[in-house]
Amino acid sequence: MIWTGIMVTAVGCYLLKLAGLSVPDHVLTRPLTQRVAALIPPALLGALIAVQVLADDQLLVVDARLAGLGAAVVLLLLRAPFLVVVAGAALTAALLRLL
């Protein structure tokens, strides 16, 4: 029974991924689609950051992740390179958890 569940999940999740990539060209070239497509990155990134930093399942939690994000903001203001920002966020959270 677990294997059935795994296979149904695998097929379903794959078809969802494939369906998004398979939207036809004539839909993609419409002006409305292009305006929406330009807005998707900031919209999704904003939502992803919030959930990544504040959510623990269905709870909102303020923990070391938020301090890590704060460190990332400071590093970005200092124009640090991407990997330094990522490492700085990780290091800040790790050090806070050591305390």
């Binding site: 900031p42 990134l45 990544q52 992740r65 990332a72 991407f82 966020a89 050090l95």
Partner: peptide
């Protein structure tokens, strides 16, 4: 992996990607 702050790393990476768009 949280001991190493890897959960915070991903949030930081997404922010660094968003930053130039703001």
């Amino acid at each position: 992996p949280r001991t190493f702050g890897l959960d915070a790393a991903v949030g930081g990476a997404f922010l660094a990607l968003l930053w130039p768009r703001l």
